[in-house]
Simulated assay, not measured.
Amino acid sequence: MDEGMALLRAADREAWLALLWAPAPKRPALASALALDLELERVVAELSEPLVAEIRLAWWRERLADLARGATAPPQPLLRALASAGRAAGLDLHALARVEDALLPLLGTDAPDLACIAARRGAALGEALQPLVGAGGVSVLARRAMARFARRSFRNGAAVVRGLAAWRQGPAASFEAPDVPPPLLAGLDALARADLRALRCGRPLARAAGPGRQLALARAAFRLPLRARNW
């Protein structure tokens, strides 16, 4: 298995399953970018000291800037995958580094504006992936980012819970609009929309990678145009 896909499988099995429906040549770069996004999320969610988390995020930002300048990747699996598959596919590594900046507000103790954070995270990741997925990825990735707040436990979990409650009570955010996702992100979009609907209605989220979620991925794949299919 490609290194990027292996890293994504370890971090988020559902995202890995979604990419299995994508054309094989595009999987490594897509997987590497999504795995980096999840690693930055992990730093914010799990490190107990905000200062330590900021230092770790700064380290990732600097390494991504080095890669964007053409530097050789250090012996770190995710950076190696981004240097090989990501650069070859034309990923915008400067844009990818902005995911770190979008996540920084989560290190505070106040209830964060999760819709704003999700929109900024989706914008950074969508811009980075545009050479691969085309236009339209930003809204899909913002929906996915919003759903991740309910899928992962955060160090400041109480603040995130308050942020989710504020989002549920407010008007529907722009990333819930009925737009058409890029074909390569159709599966991820189907899962994110299902999560957001459940959150809005106060229902529990379906089990990650469970039968219902895998069926949603298959349905999204079979709705793809023939030219976008790899199977």
Rank of each mutant, 00 (worst) to 15 (best):
E127H: 15
Q169H: 08
A166C: 06
G126H: 09
P112H: 02
A124R: 06
E127S: 15
A165W: 00
A172N: 15
D110E: 13
F149L: 03
D110S: 12
V138E: 09
L141H: 06
A145H: 04
R121I: 14
P171Q: 05
R144P: 05
I117S: 10
P171K: 01
G170S: 12
N156T: 07
A165H: 03
R121P: 12
L114S: 13
G122F: 08
A150Q: 01
D113A: 11
D110Q: 12
A119T: 13
L132C: 09
A119G: 14
S153W: 01
A150N: 01
D113R: 01
F154V: 06
P171R: 01
G163W: 00
A142N: 06
L125Q: 11
A111F: 01
F154D: 06
R151S: 06
P171W: 00
G163P: 04
A159V: 14
Q169F: 04
D113M: 02
G163M: 03
A123P: 12
G157L: 01
A172M: 08
A166Y: 00
F149A: 09
G134I: 09
V138M: 09
G134D: 08
A166V: 09
A118G: 15
A142D: 08
L132V: 12
I117L: 06
S153R: 03
V133Q: 05
R121T: 15
A159Y: 01
A165I: 12
F154R: 02
I117R: 02
W167E: 09
A165E: 12
L125C: 13
V138C: 12
D113S: 07
A150H: 01
L129W: 09
L132M: 10
G126R: 12
A119D: 13
R151M: 04
A111K: 05
L125N: 10
L129H: 10
P112T: 10
S139L: 15
A145D: 06
D113Y: 00
S139Q: 15
L114I: 10
L129V: 14
G136P: 15
W167R: 00
G163D: 04
L164A: 11
F149W: 00
A119L: 07
L129P: 11
V161M: 10
V140S: 14
Q130H: 13
R144F: 12
A142Y: 03
A128M: 10
R168F: 07
L141S: 09
A111W: 00
L141W: 03
A118M: 04
L125F: 09
A159T: 07
G137C: 14
A119Y: 05
R168S: 14
